[in-house]
Design a binder for these strands. Sequence first.
DNA 1: TTAGGGTTAG
Length: 607
Amino acid sequence: MSCYFNRTLVLHKMSFPSHSLSISATIAANAVPLATPETDPVPLQFSVLRKIESCRSIQEIKQFHALVIKSRPLQTQFVYNAIMRGVTSFRTRCGSSLEAILLYREMLMKGLVPNDYTIPFLLKACAQEYALREGEEVHVHAIKTGLLGSNVYVNNTLMRVYAVCGVIGAAQKLFDKSPQRDLVSWTTLIQGYVKTGSPREAVEVFFRMCEANFVADEMTLVIVLSACAMLGDLSLGKRIYRYMHENEVKRDVFVGNALVDMFLKCGDADLARWVFSEMPVKNVVSWNSMILGLAQQGKFKEALVVYEEMQTLGIRPDDVTLVGVLNSCANLGLLESGKWVHVYIDKHMINADGFIGNALVDMYSKCGSISQALRVFQGMKRRDVYSYTAIIVGLAMHGEAAHALEIFSDMSLVGIRPDEVTLLGVLSACSHAGLADEGQRHFEDMSRVYGLEPQTEHYACMVDLLGRAGLLSDAEEFIKNMPTEPDAFVWGALLGACRVHGKVELGELAMKKLVEIEPERDGAYILMSNMYSSADRWRDALKLRKFMKEKHVKKTPGCSSIELDGIVHEFRKGEKSHPKSKEVCRFLEEFTSHLKSFGQQDKIAFA
DNA sequence: TTAGGGTTAG
């Protein structure tokens, strides 16, 4: 009794920031005498729980809550906890954090005190809604009531609030101070590091957990596997896989999906396929993991084969599946298949905003139908930075620089901040349109206006922009002043510009640098050899080809594909396997000679 | 009556 009295007394003395939800103000204004904590009769507890569990919607819980407000004997700690449990287990549109906080305030006003069940319910709601400020308030209450530190559920749920809100330092601090830790504490900390983009640290925590003699269960492993996936570290992934065998971890559908995703992100499609085929139970996420994972590995055709298999089995795709299919169509240039997905989306009245809308814009623009991409973009009710970037990049690819820049300026009007990829689209639009000054201005704006750090891709784009505009010495100077080491894309851009403007000496320097970075690739040699030929330096061209042969430089065959009536026709340099390859070659010869008569031979050679 | 899990775009 005295213990509870002391606790409530402390609650009265607490001060909260003025912007808070004013739990403390409610307590201060509380005129109702504080009740002693009573234990409800067991039959009442059972009937309350049965009632809450029978509720099928948040409205029904609210109706029960109304009944409690009217009936004084029902106003007990147990009943409020039960309502809070009901509220937090429903995913409400209005947000369960607010509902739970309101219930908590009401509870305090009725003179009831929180216990070790109340706080976890409240904190669960805060974590679900990413309500950091409210979580911090509850943190204070948990300290003042003495529940923090004495109850592992309170500690773990509080850690989770900080972890999901990205305040990993606070979560780690709580963990370090916890007098008792269980598997959930470790798992929550590991997940905190994963969610805040630190998979390396997450894995380190996992190994520390093993040293502390905890054995991971399937929930911990799903998170650890996702950390391996983020790291793309196959040997680490295999090590975790062995751990699962050694410790006989249950392989449920979550673990299976996490394994498939991990193996694909680590580049081992065969292992992923094997795990996938061995899964006794698959769900739509399993199929999505395969389709998206294969697409992320650039295996677009394989991704579509998996999708066909899914269709054959009659499994209904969801939004994520369609995004993966659209992405594969986009990268293969399969306009007809992409259109089919669009029809499917319309037919099933799937909301074409967000991920789906953005994937459609990207698919249409990559498949050459920029007008349709624009139509989808304009028809979207909600547009985000991805939507804007997709259309800007698409317009830039189609040479419509002015339109791309116009849409870019619309972004600031509607209050959407561009990111690094948007700027890449803007710079490439400027580059293709020969707008060197405007491109330079946007490049400078990156850090000055948008607070974005230019990456090596942006530098490569600028070199391309200056090079195309014929400002070769500016491009060279630009590379010299780069804060980071120039990569193959930067030197490749310079070499390309040298090829166009016939700058052989500078081209030789770019080639030398490129060969240092990528000795096994043939691109630089081919470009340089073409450059020598154009400058009538046949001997140098021959010498370079001979050198390539001696060094066994692999030749990447040029490849192009075209979709006709839903069938993809592929053509590789030097390969005559296509049934109509003779006719195609004959047509190309005629076409080339026709173009040459218009003086376009240089462009053909370059292409 | 309480806590921790997988796939999505430019």
